[in-house]
Design a protein around this nucleic acid. Structure first.
Lengths: 226, 226
DNA sequence: TATATTTTTATAAAATCTTTATATAAATTA
DNA sequence: TAATTTATATAAAGATTTTATAAAAATATA
């Protein structure tokens, strides 16, 4: 996966790095490791990650200093992992720009949840699930469909139908499934509804209506978005 | 100070509320208190605070449920305060949209630092409070709307509606969402209010009322500002 | 009280959905 | 293969829902 979320771990303890590596990778994050402050700052600068896990007790420089240096330019989440549990340390780190502070030993489930929380809140706008298929863009967050970058006006039913097809790109969705999902379970025999709306959608998004390239008919079964 | 940051405390324990009240007020936050879930949801809806401190152990409803209900529309920080320290509770709360989780008894200095951290990171986007869309300027700080550099007189409700639409430029906001945000949760069926106010806004900001270019109707769903 | 604002009511217009009709295409069967 | 059946595409009419807007009534504010 090339668009995986990248997390930089800056910690000098090999066993912690190993634990984090395994935990994070098994949750589909791409992990990079730095063993000291110098390496951490350099790696962050050369290839900025989506989130940084920073140990405060580094051998070559205080973690607080690293944090301040990072925050001069790095705006994404930084979580502190530290054996220091004093209120003074925690307040200092948070006020220097850390987004969270976990005391070692930490619980990995909680760490993962806090990572999810930060990634969610701090990147909410870029979280748009934009589904792209050649010239058709479906932005589920904005609720906009574009063809060649021009917004297309769709009715509620048209949009629901298209987004369902696009979400299941490549898969054949049966008449029954589509009717149940869009109109409700009591409409599973109204195949004509589907034909009418598929025709309307094709009119709006296909270039050549006699040779539809996006919404494909699977005769006797259903429809498929390509 | 009228533009003080407002924090809503939802907690049934009087001594905790008192402690929070004193702590927060002495740090220049404006504090509002709710003693149970019902009151908390109602206060949050009627006058949305800048941050919510939510106890999970409320008498009338589970804090987890309150959190989920809040997150249906409330986008600002929510910090959980709870005696529950199990990883399961923490993960559940964070994944339901909480921004932080502190186990009682908590250290007030740490709480204050975490509040500062959240207010800092999550409100950084609204720091540029002037939103411009072609000929319309909305200054969220000054609460002034200008069209072609001339100030437009808007009523409170008109302004609230417009600023909400402008803040979510491009995104479709549903009738429900708008009604809940502007009038409160008990008004979600009063779509007519919305129509009346949208018409009033259009009269004030659109050049051609028969062809509105800013406030777009999404029939059956809601409205969108472009 | 006078004025501004919000809420409610009424109604026309627009948009959308459902149904019908019919042409065309695909699959099945003799 | 040809005939027949079944499935699909599409336009268009009719029904329903949703929206826009003015204006009156109620409420809040100065």
């Amino acid at each position: 996966m090339s668009n995986a979320i990248e997390i930089l771990v800056i910690d000098d303890e090999p066993q912690i790095r190993k634990l984090l590596n395994i935990t994070l990778q098994s949750n589909d994050y791409k992990v990079k490791e730095a063993v000291n402050a110098r390496e951490g700052l350099s790696m962050a600068a050369n290839h900025p990650p989506d989130l940084i896990l920073l140990d405060l007790g580094l051998p070559d420089e205080s973690g607080h200093v690293v944090l301040e240096k990072l925050r001069e330019w790095y705006t994404k989440p930084i979580i502190i992992l530290s054996v220091q549990s004093s209120e003074e340390d925690i307040v200092k780190a948070l006020d220097s720009g850390a987004n969270d502070y976990l005391v070692k030993p930490f619980r990995t489930g909680e760490l993962l949840a806090r990572i999810r929380s930060l990634l969610r809140s701090l990147s909410s706008e870029s979280e748009n699930p934009i589904l792209i298929s050649n010239d058709i863009h479906v932005d589920l967050y904005m609720r906009v469909v574009k063809k060649n970058n021009e917004a297309i006006k769709l009715t509620v039913t048209e949009y629901n139908l298209l987004s369902l097809l696009v979400k299941n790109q490549g898969k054949v969705l049966t008449h029954q499934y589509l009717l149940r999902a869009i109109w409700g379970p009591s409409y599973i025999n109204q195949s004509q509804y589907l034909r009418v709306y598929i025709a309307q959608l094709r009119k709006k998004i296909e270039n050549d209506i006699n040779n539809p390239l996006h919404i494909i008919t699977e005769s006797g079964i259903g429809y498929r978005f390509v």
